[in-house]
Design a protein around this nucleic acid. Structure first.
Lengths: 165, 165
DNA sequence: ACAAGACTGTTGATGTGTCAACAGTTGATG
DNA sequence: CATCAACTGTTGACACATCAACAGTCTTGT
């Protein structure tokens, strides 16, 4: 085993716990959105559109949700089919669509959001404000480290390829 | 907005941060396993088998990975096709297979695991042991709360259905 | 001993995600 | 202005995830 100290073992455990907890959270959110027959991903799209009532292009959605462009197509397709979202041509640029919530989509969001926020707060019941604060900064650091590690890995594999053949 | 206090807003932010960080981490792990052409899910299967060298049934895998049975079929199919894993009939019970790592699968795991553990430790660089400790218990609490909330939601939707029609 | 129920793995339908390749549009550079 | 590069959305191939339904195979209760 390459985890020598107790400290190292706990850090390994912490990583697993991080993955487990977000997975459980994701599944719970599924239960919340079920009532409106929305997937978490569909909710994320609608939530973003709710905060941008003028609408966004699909590429904007893709960038802000950190999801591939090609995935947005299908997501918007399905939401549009249910009249929760609408694609509109943009006068100045014929490449893109403006995607915005329909009134119906807006109504649904206003039903969901209070429950969503309430659940988010209940999630941390029993955790003090100080701990929340610490957690926010620790997780920020995890994001940075993850990206650093991923960058190093893909760089080293790139040089290995260059050297290889 | 149904988030009245600063404390509530931070708890909402913390939830988003939790989801973001695990997502980034998941993507980084993708970069780590890429060298062996493994997906994170495939790694999880092989890691579990590595800790159970006698092998496990597909249902065991499904339960321990918290993944649907039907998903295991394809996962094991693809690993078996690459000779990383082997299905064996079980003498006493004709319903199940025993799934175990092949020597080749074992070799790969022994290459990956040190790097995996090392990355897990590096993930928390700059975070003190005390914080790790606190985080472990806070995330445990998040898991509990998520499950409680999910249970409540599905119960209330069940009664709503009963009352409905 | 036998019917009823529980469990195992597979299949097919569907949603979500990736990537590579494409066609069309716009913008920038010569 | 003509070309080249960059960008937008879509498609098709694939992996991964769920669920419902199924066929076999135990297990249990009477």
């Amino acid at each position: 085993m390459s985890l020598n100290s107790r400290s190292q073992q706990q850090r390994y455990e912490a990583m697993l716990q991080l993955l487990r907890s977000s997975d459980t959270l994701w599944n719970a959110s599924h239960a919340l959105f079920e009532r409106w027959d929305l997937s978490p991903s569909q909710f994320n799209v609608m939530n973003l559109l709710h905060n941008n009532s003028e609408g966004l292009s699909q590429s904007d959605l893709s960038r802000q949700l950190v999801v591939h462009r090609s995935n947005i197509t299908g997501l918007v397709d399905r939401l549009e089919k249910r009249n929760l979202v609408k694609r509109t041509a943009v006068p100045g640029d014929r490449r893109l669509y403006n995607v915005a919530l329909t009134p119906q989509g807006s109504t649904i969001m206003e039903e969901i959001l209070p429950l969503y926020h309430e659940s988010a707060v209940r999630l941390w019941e029993g955790v003090t404000d100080d701990r929340i604060q610490a957690l926010l900064s620790d997780l920020e650091s995890v994001i940075q480290q993850s990206q650093t590690i991923a960058r190093e890995l893909s760089e080293s594999s790139a040089t290995a390829q260059r050297k290889g053949k």
